[in-house]
Simulated assay, not measured.
Amino acid sequence: MIASMEYVEILDHSEELGKMILHSDVMESYENSRKALQEDKKAQQLIKAFIDIKDQYEDVQRFGRYHPDYNQIMKAVRSTKREMDMNDKVAAFKIAERNLQKLLDEISQLVAISASEQIKAPKDGAALSDGGCGCGSGSGGCGCQAS
């Protein structure tokens, strides 16, 4: 019975922590920048152009330098990404995204350490595995090879 009461108490505290995060200034900034990004037609065009060229990049990567369009696609990927990253709405969103990730990482660290020093938690936006790049691209998949 004690274990179930402790479990209920932990759930209550975690729910309270979740509400605090959802109502934080960091989350509000993230939501505002995400909404502004979604409503900006120019930013959405730049993101779509980057996703389209990234698909071509992935096709080229299968053959590497031996692909006839390798140099052209590599230049196009870099210039399209640079143009997208220079957009004010995209840049503001990436900053807000990094700030939210930092807050969540700090909370994860505190929760993990409070349970045991041996528990691993995400740090600096990186995945727990050593293979994580931590690029923070926010594109739904890691695009660090393309950057």
Rank of each mutant, 00 (worst) to 15 (best):
M1V: 12
A3N: 13
E6V: 12
H13S: 15
S14V: 14
S14R: 12
M20V: 12
S24L: 00
E28G: 13
Y30Q: 05
Y30K: 03
N32W: 01
S33W: 04
R34V: 11
D40Y: 01
L46H: 03
K48Y: 02
A49H: 09
A49R: 11
A49I: 06
I51E: 14
Q56M: 08
Q56D: 15
E58C: 06
D59I: 05
V60H: 05
Q61E: 09
P68F: 13
Y70N: 12
N71I: 11
I73P: 01
I73K: 03
M74Y: 07
M74V: 13
S79G: 07
S79L: 07
K81I: 03
E83C: 02
M84R: 02
M86W: 02
D88G: 04
V90K: 05
K94F: 01
E97P: 01
E97T: 04
R98L: 02
N99V: 03
L103H: 05
V111G: 07
I113N: 11
A115L: 09
I119E: 06
P122S: 10
L128R: 00
L128Y: 00
G131K: 10
G134H: 04
G134P: 04
G134I: 09
G136Y: 01
G140W: 03
G141K: 13
G143Y: 02
G143K: 08
S147M: 09
